Simulated scan of single mutants.
Amino acid sequence: MTDPSVAEHRRRVLAEVTALAPVEVPLAEARGRVLAADVVGRLAVPPFDHAAMDGFAVRAADVADVPVELPVAGVVAAGDAVPRLEPGSAIRIMTGAELPPGADLVVPFEWTSGTDPVRVLRTAASGRHVRRTGEDVAAGAVAVSAGTRLGPVHLGLLTSVGAATVPVHPRPRLGVLSTGAELVAGHVPDSNSATLLAAGEAAGAAVRRFGPVADDPDAFRAALHDAAAASDLVVTTGGVSAGDHDVVKAVLRAEPGFWFGPVAMKPGRPQGCGALDVAGRRVPVVTLPGTPVAAYASFLLYVLPAVRALAGLPPRTRTAVLAAPVQAGDRTVLLPGRYDGRGRIAPLPGHVGHAQGLLARADALLVVPASDRVVPEGEEVEVLALHPEEDGHG
């Protein structure tokens, strides 16, 4: 029986995850959240006809033949009360000021004498240099669509259309639980927790550390319960292979619905996942190997897509063009790579299995599917960004 593929295990993990129920939050708390429903504008953008340039508001019919002189009936700046424009006159107007009733054209200052009376030297059609009410977003139209991860420009637009609160998926709570007696004793630093906490936070999750815990079933069970009770998703590292002290596998394989086994990938072959029922909630648990490079590669492949799904975001795959040929293997190979000056990527020399230093010099992991061929330069491959930002890397 062949090992399941990376894609199969990714589907297995995502089958345990559903988007978190929406909550209504003020705009000031919505940055980085995913919109759970379309937001329809209460106000139009712009909210009224206004000048797109500094100049003179006129009637196009009055300046059809130029040059022509018109008396200046007033000055209007943004926020001023707006008088009506009478035929045969002009009103000096500043950018952003409301267009006076009766006007249908703004003649830029540089097309005029700038004096009173103003001599108009050049003309244009009705509507020139005027921004009309709702030409950006009409009142009652969808301003921002469901599924959008809200950034600064979205929050600015939502403010302009009159939204004070928005329905969003909550920020996923990610619990990180490392295992290993060597970590608890301080013989080996717990680099997995440091890496995964930072990656989860960069991806938009609210992260919390619950380890390390020793290779003791009772201690692990208690820590796991605490993590699941306080999280929407728990990720563990270590204890999933076939050794005498693989406590994660020993405790969870008795739980209904948990799967453990090898996945056809290198590094990171031992994997597992399932879900725990905690206080009426079903909390997904993804169990990763303990070797730091394998743990992080597995986190990028399986946990970050789960974080996206919890946040209401769809799966996403990034690709890059190879700058050098790559030898594939009998399972999916994950290779550290660096981009060249043309946006292509090539593997770094060295053995990735335990090489954190090599990983730190890389930009991304190349995901090279199993085959018996050499993948040629110029072919596209999937890549996993090693420095995921809060743009929903998956």
Rank of each mutant, 00 (worst) to 15 (best):
A385T: 13
V153F: 12
A30I: 06
D232M: 07
G274T: 03
D372L: 12
R331L: 07
A306H: 01
L300C: 11
L174M: 06
G147W: 02
P256R: 01
R149I: 01
V106I: 11
E201C: 09
P289T: 12
G41A: 11
G127A: 12
L150R: 07
G140I: 08
V45L: 12
F258Q: 08
A19N: 08
P108I: 00
L365S: 04
A21D: 15
M53D: 13
V66E: 06
T195Q: 15
A242F: 14
V235F: 05
K266W: 14
M53Y: 11
E69T: 15
P349L: 09
V120C: 05
V166L: 01
P26D: 04
R173H: 07
A7L: 12
R209T: 09
A198C: 09
A194F: 10
L322A: 05
V240H: 02
E389I: 12
A64K: 14
G239F: 01
G140H: 06
G88Q: 09
E86R: 14
V63Y: 02
P314I: 03
K266M: 13
P270Q: 10
P167Q: 05
A346F: 09
A311K: 00
A146F: 06
E390Y: 05
R11I: 08
D226E: 14
V68W: 04
V58M: 07
R132C: 08
A320L: 03
P336M: 11
G74I: 09
V118K: 00
R42P: 10
L174Y: 01
G175Q: 05
L358E: 03
V25R: 01
P262Y: 13
L20I: 07
R122G: 06
T287W: 04
A60D: 08
G186D: 05
T195I: 15
E16A: 13
H187W: 11
L174K: 07
T237K: 00
G204R: 03
A199L: 12
I345M: 05
A141T: 08
T179E: 06
V63C: 03
V234Y: 04
R281K: 11
G74W: 08
G238A: 09
C273Y: 06
A328V: 07
P305I: 00
G55W: 00
P4F: 04
R119L: 15
D216P: 05
L14T: 04
V40M: 09
G243D: 11
V118G: 01
A360M: 15
R92Q: 15
H351E: 15
L366N: 04
P108V: 01
R10A: 11
D226L: 13
V234R: 01
G350N: 04
A15Y: 03
L121H: 12
V286C: 04
L224H: 06
P217S: 10
L334E: 04
S371A: 13
G238D: 09
V263E: 07
T291S: 14
G272R: 00
A28E: 15
T112H: 02
A228M: 08
D218E: 15
A146V: 10
T236W: 02
T236Q: 03
P388Q: 05
G200F: 00
D62S: 11
A141K: 03
V40T: 14
S5I: 10
A254N: 14
L158F: 03
L70W: 03
P101C: 12
E24I: 13
